[in-house]
Computed example of a mutant assay.
Amino acid sequence: MEILPIISDSTNELETIFEDLHAHPEIGFTETRTAQIVAEKLRAFGVDEVHTGIAKTGVVGLIRGKGGGNRRIGLRADMDALPIDETTGLAYASTTPGAMHACGHDGHTTMLLGAAKHLAETRDFDGTVVLIFQPAEEGLGGARGMLAEGLFEQFPCDEIYGMHNRPSGEPGQVAICKGPAMAGSSFFDIHIQGKGSHAARPQESRDPLVVASALVGQIQTILSRNVSPEDTCVVSITQIHSGSAYNVVPDTATLCGTIRYFDDAVCKLAETRMKELCDGLALAYGVEIRLDLRNVFDVLVNDAELSDAYLEAAADVVGAANVRDDLPPVTGSEDFADMLKIVPGAYCVVGHAGTMPLHNPGFVLDKGILPVGASIMARMAERRLPLAGQ
């Protein structure tokens, strides 16, 4: 393992930052404390410009290299936590009820800060590194918020790179899936307006629970009877809400869930069939059904050439034997995809010793990943912005 010297010497500092962020998680668009710490650290590290308040809590820093060139490389990390109560029992566990860094964004933020420290001290590159600390990745539209406020108009990038921890039990293993790598996603809410009654006289009702139950079954036929088995698509009902008493047939019911896809046409097909099923069951049962569908994530597509470049930079740190470009696509989603739709780049995963899955209340990020991820990001910037003669 070839951790960059400045980052290696800063390991204790990075772990302290990480533990502090972990103990004080903040949900998307409320990362006020996190953003303040990020901005303070960037200024202390000598970053040339620090801009705050982008999409409420986003932070952008600029570091100019020795060469003074015009090319610009973006490095991005997410900052938000999840609405989960932590059960790890760590000494630095969350002190905020109902919030936890169960996806490791505290680690991502720390790694980019470590890269920033190295790059600001050495400046062994020709051009500008754009450090992007993004809020609200967890389905709340943080990337789209930053883009809507002119992220790349204010801070243009020629290429951009992101990173995620992978609790694989394989520390130092870096992998990329070239091309479509992570699924796009739409979220949906189905609101059923029926007619309530006394539970002893259900014939006087138009029972929304019966309709909801029918919809759960019918929606599963979208994949089995409409989508080709050669296409990847997932439709999941994840919430059912209705009723408040044992002896009342309720007026309303709500279903919520998600569609995951790799092809826009497949997503459109699933959405169309869902609307047709809602309209048909509304007519059949004599109720009103309103479908609220909204796209939340685009398909994340890694540029093949830049993926190779990313792995070459990673190999400088973890060794060529520990990088791979054959990671299969995953049906999870990541809003870095929105940035990659505008600026070419790549997104890698870095393995660590932890094995508890992401988004689990017992998830623990192995702190050993911090200098590894920081070094890979820093090397990526240096490789893509080489000084003359290097």
Rank of each mutant, 00 (worst) to 15 (best):
C256P: 00
V210W: 09
K178W: 10
V372Q: 05
L387S: 07
M100D: 10
A320Y: 06
A23Y: 10
Y161D: 02
E2G: 14
Y261T: 01
N322Q: 12
V317Q: 05
I240M: 14
A214K: 03
I259L: 12
A346R: 03
G243L: 07
I160R: 11
V38T: 02
T95I: 07
G58S: 09
P371T: 11
E276W: 07
V317N: 07
E153F: 11
T32P: 03
M274N: 00
K195W: 00
L255H: 00
V50G: 05
Q218Y: 04
L293D: 02
L327H: 03
F133D: 05
V59G: 12
H24C: 06
P229S: 04
G196I: 06
Q218K: 06
T258R: 01
A175Q: 09
V287S: 12
E382Y: 11
T96Y: 05
L269C: 03
S242K: 07
G362F: 06
I176N: 14
H164I: 08
Y92P: 15
T221G: 05
D85G: 02
C256K: 05
E170L: 15
I240Q: 01
L215W: 03
P5E: 10
Y347A: 07
F125A: 08
G332T: 00
A214W: 03
V129D: 01
E288F: 04
L358F: 06
L21F: 15
N295F: 05
G345W: 04
D124R: 11
T88S: 15
G89N: 08
M1E: 15
T95E: 15
L140A: 11
A353P: 01
P344V: 04
A320Q: 07
F297K: 12
V60G: 06
M377R: 02
P167Y: 08
I259D: 00
K275Y: 06
P328M: 04
D189F: 11
R290M: 09
G345K: 00
A321G: 12
E204V: 00
A245H: 03
H101A: 10
L291N: 14
I6Q: 04
R76D: 02
D366V: 13
D20C: 13
D325N: 14
V60H: 01
I6V: 13
G89T: 12
T30A: 10
T11L: 14
A381F: 13
D48G: 05
L119H: 06
H51V: 15
V350F: 07
